[in-house]
Design a protein around this nucleic acid. Structure first.
Length: 599
RNA sequence: GGUUCGGUAGCUCAGCUGGAUAGAGCAUCAGCCUUCUAAGCUGGGGGUCAUUGGUUCGAAUCCAAUCCGGAUCACCA
């Protein structure tokens, strides 16, 4: 049980014992950490009880304070400041906490619970390379997966690849028309980029063709439908659905190029999956569910044969589930895949990491499954995140106004290199070590930049301003970790201790302010992890790691570790920094960010 | 228009189960390397927490209305 819980529990018992005749709810008790300007570690807010118990805050505080001091062992004393009861925890508690956990690699991990969760993220289209916005999705999904694992869940990381449909046919038709057989090998262009180039080209040509038709007197809507390249793309889709061998071969080839490219990107980003779904394999699954729904009378058919669901009672409109010609729409496939996931893995929760532009879609998906009586509906949770925008507005692959993910990674690594060299910190590294370091710093900065903001908020990224390596960044945290490692190396202490090197630690001296601040932060790590998991929010971890690193830096500045005032202080501080390093490392790992031992 | 998310320092963001004087980073100004890594530390300036009203001992936080901005309401995915 962490301190916050303990204090609340103690306060509750104190009130119950002091006022047995009055019904007190534990929800009424507010326990906070004491603000830095006041003496104390934890604060109980007295106001809620003043009226109820008919005692003035000062008297009430004294009664509770005295009771707690006399009947529990956690606190050494208390003060009352205008309605706040500030309690100071005994140094002994902090000492024992530290001695118990400082070399525990698994500190903070929550015991296994019987809960299997699937996290679907990334879910790329195979017609274009990843851009900056996709990075937010990938980092979020990967990080939330790790956080949920640390919180005791069994997590399956899934990727549903959008590998079929009209958008794929668009890049195919442009390639057929204009590429002269170009391949990634022949051109030296990464496969996903090559295919993406033809997707952009399709839209250029399409726009021109539409313009020509409009000039020839066609209305805009007609022109959009009749543009030859669009008609060819649709013809391609029909052939694809009919299983035309040539079309399928080309589709297979071009998707293969894209996968090669994606694999390179994923490897570099450190993004992995436990299960791949391909829409081309799942897109027919929804039809069966819909048929059953029709038979049960939950869905209805219009004269043209299209199938609909009526959601008016739930505040929505009617929604099409199957076209008149029997082909599936976007949500048809999702219905099937949702059920498939549930049946295959017996998951109790299914998380979709998808941008907030699809809020409506996912809420309807869940609602329809519920109406159809599918048990998979209950566990569906949309981890909705804000889009990454440029100062000029949304990124659009069609128009080529995107910040490319691969380019961004290159730039960040180059920036890390440049700044390391400028700072003159390249000595003592082999070239391989330096290359690794630049990647650790560059990628770390990128991930942290995208994860440090609350997921549901949209972000504006200005490509002209490079991502900082100072202040609230991964670099700052990595630097704190490297500093600690440097001290430990000089002291000849391994990062992970097997035997308890400080077993005979018998502290007598009072803990100093910054020493206590760090220990207290470390003590809160399990709470932070639990909160982050509950909210599916990695930014909580970002904030925590930064605060811990920041506090360490202040501590480091005024307290010498190697040359501490005496042996006891040296031991204490070594324990503090060992645990700090471990916690920083574990926290950053939850974000998918590595920490170097030297930088 | 319906639904929905957001509006906190010049900029980017924390804080939002109501609690003490609203916090970080960047930028800016002033200090700190003979001492464990200055990618760091210390301090200053910078705020009508969109607006108005309500609930409360107490509101950035909860409620209502209004203003501003985004997303969405496709036989696109």
């Amino acid at each position: 049980m962490t301190l916050t819980h303990q204090v609340k529990y103690i306060a509750f018992n104190a009130l119950k014992s002091l006022f047995p005749e009055i019904d007190i709810n534990s929800d009424m008790i507010t326990v906070n950490q004491t603000k830095p300007d006041f003496v104390g570690d934890y604060t109980i807010v007295l106001f809620p009880f003043v009226k109820l118990l008919k005692q003035k805050p000062d008297i009430l505080g004294k009664n509770i304070g005295n009771y707690i001091i006399e009947n529990t062992t956690l606190f050494q004393n208390y003060t009352i400041v205008s309605g706040f009861l500030n309690l100071t925890v005994k140094d002994d508690y902090w000492h024992r906490f530290l001695a118990k956990h400082f070399n525990d690699e698994n500190y903070g991990l929550i015991a296994k619970i019987d809960c299997r969760i699937m996290v679907e993220y990334s879910s790329p289209n195979t017609n274009k390379p990843l851009h900056f916005g996709h990075l937010r999705n990938n980092f979020l999904g990967a990080s939330v997966s790790e956080i949920l694992k640390a919180a005791g869940n069994d997590v399956i990381k899934a990727n549903l690849v959008n590998d079929r449909g009209i958008h794929i046919c668009k890049s195919m038709i442009a390639w057929m028309r204009y590429a002269n057989g170009a391949t990634p090998i022949a051109t030296g262009i990464k496969g996903d980029h090559l295919v993406g180039d033809y997707y952009v080209l399709f839209n250029d040509v399409y726009k021109k063709e539409v313009a020509q038709l409009i000039e020839a007197g066609k209305p805009e809507k007609t022109a959009e439908k009749e543009a030859p390249i669009m008609q060819e793309a649709q013809e391609l889709l029909r052939k694809w659905e009919a299983g035309d061998v040539e079309v399928r071969n080309l589709w297979h080839t071009m998707n293969g190029w894209v996968y090669e490219g994606f694999t390179k990107s994923y490897n570099r980003l450190g993004i992995t999956f436990d299960k791949m779904y391909y829409e081309s394999e799942t897109y027919l699954l929804g039809k069966k569910i819909i048929e059953e729904g029709l038979n049960k009378g939950i869905l209805f058919k219009k004269e043209d044969g299209s199938v609909w669901v009526d959601l008016k009672e739930d505040g929505f409109d009617e929604k099409l589930l199957l076209r008149g010609d029997g082909t599936s729409v976007y949500i048809t496939q999702d219905l099937g895949t949702a059920k498939l996931k549930y049946d295959e893995f017996n998951i109790s929760q299914s998380i979709y990491v998808i941008a907030d532009e699809q809020n409506y879609h996912i809420s309807i998906l869940k609602l329809i499954l519920k109406k159809l009586g599918e048990p998979c509906a209950e566990g569906i949770y949309h981890l909705s995140y804000g889009m990454v925008e440029l100062p000029t507005g949304k990124m659009k692959s069609r128009e080529g106004t995107v910040v490319d993910a691969d380019d961004m990674v290159d730039e960040m690594i180059a920036l890390a290199k440049e700044q390391t060299e400028t700072a003159g910190k390249t000595e003592g590294f082999t070239p391989k070590e330096l290359a690794d370091l630049y990647e650790t710093i560059g990628l770390g900065a990128l991930k942290f930049y995208l994860l440090r903001v609350d997921p549901k908020k949209k972000m504006i990224f200005n490509p002209k301003e490079s991502i900082d390596l100072h202040g609230f960044t991964a670099t700052f945290i990595q630097y704190a970790h490297a500093r600690i490692c440097s001290i430990l190396k000089k002291e000849n202490i391994p990062l992970s201790l097997d035997s308890n090197q400080f077993a005979n630690f018998k502290p007598t001296l009072p803990i100093e302010k910054l020493e206590k601040e760090i220990i207290s932060l470390l003590e809160q790590y399990p709470n932070i992890l639990a909160e982050s998991a509950k909210e599916f929010n990695p930014s909580t971890i970002c904030n925590y790691c930064f605060l811990l690193a920041q506090t360490f830096n202040s501590f480091y500045d005024i307290h010498s570790i190697s040359k501490a005032e005496n042996e006891e202080k040296k031991q204490l501080r070594l324990m503090i920094i060992i645990m700090t390093a471990t916690t920083l490392k574990n926290g950053m790992n939850l974000l998918g960010i590595k920490v170097p031992n030297k930088m």
